[in-house]
Nucleic acid binder design. Structure first.
Length: 491
RNA sequence: GGCGUUGUGGCCGAGUGGCUAGGCAGAGCUCUGCAAAAGCUUGUACAGCGGUUCGAAUCCGCUCGACGCCUCCA
């Protein structure tokens, strides 16, 4: 029997602001859409956190035996710098500044994005569509919305009529706003706006003559509005209504609100059953954002090449750090927190490495089924990875007791225990087992030699010499670890 | 100003109306020639003020603070 029939997941649905039992539209299948990056610059660590949160969701559903279609888009057109009325396209701007083709910008940062996510061990989505690859689909949706009387054309641009839509539907259903308040709070500043109301948003924008990113349409040579691509691509690959839509908290309004309105205006059905929003990664008490310069690049974690870092960290340690917080909580990034996580991470991996040293017994002295279910319970409760990790550390204690033969497991129990421990750490959390000793072989040989010399000195009870070797190695940054089975070292 | 989230012990970070989160650091113990490492054990907490309750850090109200969105951002 599939695991998902035994393990019932609850998801916090942003639409209802409460945890709901997850029931997929088609049993055994899940359609999931996550808003991807706008590829106009390098992704920062905050971006990575959001995608990692949904990587966790994807991995867990797969583990439960669901057949998941995971779609995550690449925004390579239409994302304006300012509001949908006046700003410059982010990618076009970057291309202008660097004097390269917009598609070169897109290519460069798409490749970077993939490289970064691979380093952090995120699984690729099943479909990764681009906005520019779906211009026709977007135009068709605009036509449909115009036909339904919920969009209007002005000077070659098409806008969504939010007020008209709001007469029958609730614009603001996701973000808990109502349009009347918004109208009262809107600053009326640009008199030359083509929009009937400031809340209206662009579905199609006519391109200025100098604008090089342009496609033909019934209204003008131009480009699609940012919100539209997600509606077009999610509808195309997941259907008019699908299970899960995810993204960063900052996309809730207006982006996801607009998606709901567009899809409803187009198909007359609300597009998404469960909306999920990952929270922000903050740095220096402020949101990480490229636009403010308050950010850290994923690469800088790995190289240590950032002023706030005391040293480099393996990517998987950063992953572990982020998974120690729940995806809906704001997470505060700092060097100290990362250092603390790293120590915990190595303790966890040390236990993983000890698993093979455990010997099976005739009978079990502990009940592992309860522990296993507690791991599932953690994940079933809105993907609570911090609780799962706490349970895994309970498992670490158990492993140490088993190694010391203070507890015992039968052959079957041991097999199940090992499999569960490994599955949650590597398949579900997506951690990788790296060793802290990544020194070169030469250095390793030299240290081994010194260890041999020290051990000889110790046999001769020449403590002065043995301590000198140990302490001077320590001063050089090489730490000796005397164990029962000999001496090892760490750098 | 509006909408929303949030305020937990030295630090990071979970959580529930009454029962230990967990990690790091600290302390004690085991091991060791000493030390380190490793393992085991362990203390300090729920912003403030009211209210509901037999009982609240957990529910409600107010105050103060922080953050996000309200123009683009994962």
């Amino acid at each position: 029997m599939e695991l998902y029939k035994q393990q019932k997941v609850k998801i916090y649905n942003s639409l209802s602001n409460q945890k709901e039992d997850f029931v997929s539209i088609n049993e055994g299948y899940i359609g999931m859409y996550v808003c991807g990056p706008t590829v106009y610059s390098n992704v920062h660590l905050g971006n990575v956190r959001t995608f990692m949160s949904f990587d966790l969701v994807y991995r867990y559903f797969k583990h439960l035996g669901y057949k998941v279609r995971y779609v995550r888009n690449i925004t390579d057109a239409g994302h304006l710098e300012n509001d949908a009325d006046v700003g410059e396209d982010r990618i076009a701007k970057k291309a202008r500044l660097e004097e390269i083709e917009p598609m070169e910008v897109v290519q460069r940062y798409t490749v970077d994005f993939h490289n970064v996510l691979r380093k952090f061990n995120l699984l690729p989505p099943n479909i990764e569509p681009t906005a520019t690859g779906h211009i026709i689909e977007q135009i068709e949706i605009i036509k449909s919305i115009i036909d339904n009387g919920l969009a209007y054309e002005v000077n070659g641009s098409v806008y969504f009529d939010v007020l008209k839509y709001n007469e029958k539907e609730h614009y603001g259903i996701l973000s808990g706003r109502n349009i009347e308040d918004a109208i009262h709070n809107t600053r009326v500043l640009d008199g030359q706006s083509e929009k009937r109301n400031p809340q209206d948003f662009a579905l199609w924008k006519k391109a200025q003559p100098e604008h090089i990113m342009r496609w033909p349409s019934p209204w003008s040579d131009g480009f699609p509005g940012w919100h539209l691509e997600c509606t077009a691509m999610s509808t195309k690959y997941l259907g008019e209504q699908f299970d899960i839509h995810g993204g960063g908290m900052d996309l809730k309004f207006p982006h996801h609100e607009c998606e709901i309105a567009q899809a409803q205006a187009h198909n007359n059905i609300t597009p998404v059953k469960y909306w999920m929003h990952g929270n922000m990664l903050i740095l220096n008490g402020k949101k990480m954002a490229k636009s403010t310069g308050n950010y850290i690049l994923p690469e800088e974690i790995i190289t240590g090449n950032n002023a706030i870092l005391s040293k480099p960290f393996p990517a998987t340690v950063a992953r572990f750090f982020m998974l120690q917080a729940h995806y809906r909580s704001i997470l505060d990034f700092s060097n100290d927190a990362l250092v603390a996580s790293e120590k915990g991470y190595y303790r966890l991996m040390n236990a993983v490495n000890l698993l093979d040293n455990i010997q099976e017994s005739n009978a079990s002295s502990i009940d592992i089924s309860e522990w296993i279910q507690s791991c599932y319970n953690a994940m079933n409760d809105d993907f609570n990875s911090p609780i799962l990790i706490a349970n895994l550390f309970e498992g670490v204690k158990t492993i140490n007791l088993l190694v010391e033969k203070k507890e015992t497991l039968s052959s079957n129990d041991l097999k199940t225990f090992k499999a569960t421990f490994n599955t949650f750490i590597f398949d579900v959390l997506g951690l990788e087992n790296v060793t802290s000793t990544d020194s070169s072989e030469k250095l390793s040989n030299v240290v081994e030699l010194l260890i041999d010399m020290r051990n000889e000195a110790r046999i001769n009870k020449d403590w002065a010499l043995s301590d000198q070797i140990r302490d001077q190695l320590a001063a050089a940054g090489v730490q000796l670890k005397d164990g029962k089975d000999g001496t090892t070292f760490a750098i």
